[in-house]
């Protein structure tokens, strides 16, 4: 079957979401979904079209044992041996003051939160913007964070990034609307080290409407209004408070 035909892809996506694509055809399509962004986009569009119809289904309260089972299956103890794809979750969890598995302690200096010099109450999370940037293979590579009202950005290296001599690693903010704008230059270091750069304003001012961050390799620091080169790392920018 030629999946490059958009109308065929759209038809398969529609029956996949409706639920009438069954058996081997469904499995083949699921496999395709993992590889083909166009298929993912088609499915998302159909989910948006049909999903709202589920609103009409009367809610039925599930018994308490369901939540109990979910809780026990997702409790920190159950995450001691996390799935490979999610190995960084406990790492971030630590950054946010929650539980960390022993093996990862060495990877994660405790200085992560205090670097901004903000005295935080124990257990309290500083209000922060955090972005986990992944490379093209989806490997978490840089963890970028800054406190809500701070201008200093912490760049934690999770994997080595090769920067050619004479080039710089430019961090970009990708706002919800409008063109990407440069945030600053990241200096990658040997993992798991951290470096910093300062932004022209506070995170709150610059990042409040920025759902994604990205990194490109440039000849020198980008000026506002410049067009970014190819993004080698991208990730969501999340508010934490």
């Amino acid at each position: 079957m030629n999946y490059n035909r958009p109308e065929l892809l759209d038809r398969l996506a529609s029956e996949y979401v409706l639920g009438t694509l069954r058996g081997r055809a469904r499995r083949r399509f699921e496999q395709l979904l993992r590889q083909l962004p166009a298929a993912q986009a088609a499915v998302r569009a159909w989910e948006e079209r049909l999903g709202p119809l589920a609103v009409a289904v009367p809610p039925v309260a599930p018994p308490a044992r369901v939540w109990a089972a979910i809780e026990s299956r997702t409790a920190p103890a159950a995450r001691r041996a996390p799935a490979r794809a999610a190995w960084w979750k406990p790492l971030l969890g630590f950054a946010l003051g929650s539980v960390l598995t022993i093996g990862l302690v060495q990877l994660m200096p405790g200085s992560f939160m205090s670097l901004d010099g903000l005295a935080q109450k124990e257990q309290a999370l500083p209000q922060s913007y955090v972005g986990l940037l992944v490379d093209k293979e989806g490997q978490p590579t840089l963890l970028i964070s800054s406190t809500r009202h701070g201008t200093r950005v912490t760049v934690k290296s999770l994997r080595p990034v090769a920067v050619p001599p004479g080039k710089v690693l430019q961090v970009w903010a990708l706002p919800r609307e409008g063109a990407p704008f440069p945030l600053g230059i990241a200096t990658p270091t040997k993992p798991p080290g951290s470096t910093h750069f300062d932004m022209s304003g506070t995170s709150e001012k610059l990042l409040a409407n920025v759902p994604r961050l990205a990194v490109s390799i440039e000849d020198g620091p980008a000026q506002p209004g410049a067009t970014p080169g190819e993004f080698i790392l991208t990730g969501h920018c999340v508010k934490l408070w």
């Binding site: 639920g19 289904v57 309260a61 979750k89 971030l92 946010l96 929650s98 969501h236 999340v238």
Partner: peptide, 30 residues
């Protein structure tokens, strides 16, 4: 959901309690 991605259990519980009855209804229908 953004917080759940970062391992926030309280947020996870809030997501469950605000959506589970609806989602249970959907599953039950099918």
């Amino acid at each position: 959901l953004a917080r759940v991605a970062l391992g926030d259990r309280a947020a996870f519980e809030r997501v469950y309690h605000s959506t589970s009855a609806h989602l249970f209804g959907v599953a039950l229908r099918i």
